Simulated assay, not measured.
Amino acid sequence: MNVRPTLDDVRRAPKVLLHDHLDGGVRPATVVDLARESGYGDLPTTDADGLRAWFEDSSNSGSLERYLETFGHTVGVMQSAEALTRVAYECGEDLAKDGIVYAEVRYAPEQHLRAGLTLEQVVEAVLDGFARARRDFGIRVGTLVTAMRHQARSMEIAELAVRYRDAGVVGFDIAGAEAGYPPTRHLDAFEYLQRENAHFTIHAGEGFGLPSIWQAIQWCGADRLGHGVRIIDDIDVTGGEARLGRLADYVRDKRIPLEMCPTSNIQTGAAKSIAEHPIGLLRRLSFRVTVNTDNRLMSGTTLSEEFAKLSDAFGYGWDDLQWFTVNAMKSAFAPFNERLELINGVIKPGFAQLKWSGGRPLA
């Protein structure tokens, strides 16, 4: 019997998170503290609750300018090694409290150099915070170093990913505005990573359409797609029967993971509502879909809340949530043995227990 879980039950489930931005999940109280310590004076308010509301209101405003402004404040207070270590540690703690057993958290080292840190010092500070979180909370966190697609440091950041891949950096990413900044602009970095047998994902198919997805896969060789929502544009559902175009068919056949972030996708206009989010159709068609948070502070969300929203919108029960979770763990950049250990030793037993001890029968 597939049962529909409550939010409290979902929080107890062993979950996996692949798409979460470090600067998009800072605690409001920490932003206030770090601003005071660093002399950063541009916050709209120094009241933590008021600041939380401001972040969420700005992100829901429909104004791209206001949405981007939110990151200016979080990045602005993350310019010292101590700040980066604290934010990473608290991120690990918050994710662990939400029942996440494995996470991949991404950030752009090049955005944290204003106070004189080197790229290496940025990476090491973040790794230190997550190492402490694993020691104290048991959560396993791998990091992705991200290059900004409108800048020209992608090769430098790719080399950083390779240099630190045995220390906790599990992959590479590019992020930022898609329109005008195609993945192929950074082709040299992706070709370098392939030669080095390194993992990478690419933000594609969120703010731009199928050409961005096609380039990310066929030109750049992406292992995963960050968001990938617009793959729906290559699926014709006229008459009630889904017919896949060649790109969508390829993505499904190759089991290319889609890092979908429902609430964030609504805020950025990639989807109209949770009920209308392409994830429903893509799950029915058995794409390799994963569920993620993107920016927990800006979206006012957790992974448990994302799952609960999907359960309410699509009637998902424990079997569905386990399917999403196993998809994510299969798609992680962790070593194969570690993925297998978590799937068979933690995720499946955890869901098996919850299926029969929690939730309520589906109507």
Rank of each mutant, 00 (worst) to 15 (best):
L113A: 08
V229W: 00
E56K: 14
R132D: 14
V251G: 06
A204W: 00
G205W: 01
H73Y: 12
C91I: 08
G317C: 09
T301G: 10
H277V: 00
S154V: 01
Y89C: 14
A271W: 02
I202S: 00
A363P: 14
D8C: 09
T70Q: 04
P211C: 05
A271V: 01
S311I: 05
K330E: 15
T184N: 07
A271K: 03
G76P: 09
F333N: 13
G205T: 01
G129F: 08
F333H: 13
A222W: 03
D236C: 06
V229K: 00
E124S: 10
R36S: 04
A88V: 10
I256D: 06
P28S: 10
A96P: 08
W318N: 12
D9C: 15
G99T: 09
D320P: 04
R27C: 03
I139M: 11
N295D: 15
N295M: 04
T290A: 06
A35E: 09
A158F: 12
P28H: 11
Q353T: 07
E241F: 08
A147C: 12
P211D: 03
R224K: 14
E341F: 12
G228E: 00
A158K: 10
F137Q: 08
R12C: 13
I266Q: 05
S357L: 14
P5Q: 15
V31M: 12
L225T: 02
G76S: 11
R284G: 11
Q322E: 15
G345N: 01
N327T: 01
G228H: 02
N2M: 13
A179E: 15
R165H: 12
K309W: 05
D223C: 06
H199E: 05
D98W: 06
D312H: 13
L247D: 07
D234H: 02
A131K: 12
W219C: 09
S61P: 02
F336T: 15
I347T: 03
E156F: 09
L247R: 10
Q151T: 12
E196D: 04
T30E: 07
L210D: 05
L144V: 11
E191K: 12
E110T: 15
R185M: 05
A328M: 10
L362A: 10
N2K: 14
L258V: 04
A13W: 07
Q79N: 09
L7D: 05
P349C: 11
F351Y: 10
M78A: 11
T238W: 03
F351N: 11
I274T: 11
L160M: 12
L160R: 13
S63L: 06
K348W: 02
R339K: 15
E120Y: 08
L354N: 08
N60Y: 04
A363M: 08
V237K: 05
L51G: 05
